Simulated scan of single mutants.
Amino acid sequence: MYITIIAFNKFHGSKPLVLEGLVKLVKEPDNKYDAEAIACEMRYFGKIGYLANSTQTVIKGCMSAGRVLDKIDDGYFAKIKFVTDHAAIAKILTPDEFIKEIENQESDIHYLCEDPSGVDLEKIEKNFIK
């Protein structure tokens, strides 16, 4: 699953967005602008933007926040694959990729995830769109 990250200019600009950088996806059900909002956080920077959720901001071939919302647990992860001045495309980690990140002691996942073992890998595997 690929997603579009937007609205990062008002936070830190595109500076923290590096290829293969790890992004934590955090659902914001109480967001006053979008009940399907999913924030994106990175190590050292905190919140860096949001998943795109409209036909005008979602890059073709990517899923909107609304489509991703029920497919992931709160606090799941994605890796940045492409970066422009206005958006970034990230790939949501598969369960196997998530496990590899946990096994890598150098991974930012250990700084972004309070309890990696608490993520429901079966739910992600079941809902993961290949």
Rank of each mutant, 00 (worst) to 15 (best):
M1Y: 14
I3C: 08
T4V: 05
T4W: 05
I6V: 04
A7R: 12
F8D: 02
F8C: 06
N9V: 07
K10M: 12
F11N: 11
G13D: 10
S14L: 12
K15M: 11
K15P: 05
V18C: 12
V18N: 14
V18W: 00
G21W: 06
L22T: 01
L22N: 09
K24R: 15
K24Q: 12
K24L: 00
V26I: 13
E28K: 15
E28G: 00
P29R: 11
P29C: 08
P29W: 14
D30N: 15
N31G: 02
K32G: 00
D34N: 13
E36T: 13
I38M: 02
E41I: 03
M42H: 08
Y44A: 09
Y44H: 15
F45G: 01
F45Y: 15
F45H: 09
I48Y: 05
I48R: 08
G49Q: 07
Y50F: 10
L51K: 06
N53I: 08
N53T: 03
S54T: 12
Q56F: 00
I59H: 00
I59D: 03
I59N: 01
I59Q: 06
M63G: 00
S64L: 02
S64H: 05
A65S: 14
G66H: 02
R67T: 07
D70M: 11
A78L: 03
K79H: 06
K81Y: 12
K81I: 05
V83I: 09
V83S: 04
V83D: 06
T84K: 09
T84S: 13
I92P: 10
L93M: 11
T94A: 11
D96T: 12
F98V: 13
E101K: 06
E101T: 08
E103T: 03
E103H: 08
E103N: 13
N104H: 10
N104W: 03
Q105S: 14
Q105I: 14
E106G: 00
S107R: 01
S107H: 07
I109F: 02
I109A: 00
L112Q: 09
D115W: 03
S117L: 03
V119P: 00
V119D: 00
E122S: 13
K123A: 11
K123M: 14
K123G: 05
E125H: 13
E125A: 15
K126W: 04
N127R: 12
F128G: 05
K130H: 15
